[in-house]
Design a protein around this nucleic acid. Structure first.
Lengths: 138, 138
DNA sequence: TTTTTTGCAAACGTTTTGCACACAT
DNA sequence: ATGTGTGCAAAACGTTTGCAAAAAA
């Protein structure tokens, strides 16, 4: 298949062996645009799709993909770790209570006057999380 | 004592009984300016200071102080929750690897063009985390 | 005395690890 | 054949909870 061929190439180019599990996970992750997933969610999707990976393998793969630059870890509070399939510079809305994350229109936000980092350190990246809550009715 | 009297007043005004443990923890937290601490770290400090609180009590107190508006929860990735004694609007540097947090000069940063939140939601707050890493030598 | 708080140990949910077996090369 | 990757179950980690004993009101 064409799509799976592309996914396989992508996995291989990340320096990882294109195993059945990794290809299945990568397909779920990268097939349909930007996604924000926890390991648990991806595991459920995989199982539902008829690919019975173990949760441990999902964690392994997510971290391997992250190291390879295919994913980004999302910095939101809460117990779960979220992985973002969009690795380019962009920021997030976070809905309190629901633990839902989605992208802020990338063109929109601008940060001004970022201070210089202390001696010997450089900026790895800038994460903006805009926390949202239900609007109060008044 | 004067300092402890002030701390006690602060705890009491938060609607909490000024117990030995809460006063000790509040002293450690609020005595010396802005701090960013995990529960574990505060627990160690307390024990080192000769106040053998239990870790459970540290967690309880931190959450009670947070509800009372004396602390803010810090949203940096990673497994640990950090509490910030500075509850005013400001942002953070985060040193990767070291899990260290410190404030960005509050006057400095400005965010432009924040998009409107979706219907029915309002912005609770905006958190900026500037992740730092050791500068590469070249 | 009544109510709140504490401390312990056990429970919890998420993530990581050790190791035998299976798979990709 | 060799080296990786996988799956399971167990361990680890930070955090929360239930409950009896202790302290504050």
């Amino acid at each position: 298949m064409d799509v799976n061929g592309a996914i396989e190439k992508r996995v291989r180019e990340a320096g990882l062996r294109p195993t059945r599990q990794r290809i299945a996970l990568a397909s779920l992750l990268f097939a349909k645009g930007d996604r924000h997933l926890s390991a648990e969610e991806l595991h459920e999707e995989a199982v539902a799709a008829g690919v019975p990976v173990s949760l441990a393998t999902v964690y392994n793969s997510l971290h391997q993909f992250t190291e390879a630059g295919l994913l980004r870890i999302l910095a939101v509070e809460g117990s779960k770790t979220y992985f973002d399939t969009n690795t380019s510079d962009h920021h997030h809305f976070f809905i309190e209570g629901e633990n839902k994350v989605f992208d802020i229109d990338p063109g929109a936000v601008k940060v001004l006057n970022l201070p210089e980092p202390p001696e010997g350190l450089e900026i790895a990246n800038v994460d903006i999380v805009v926390r949202l809550r239900p609007k109060r009715v008044r």
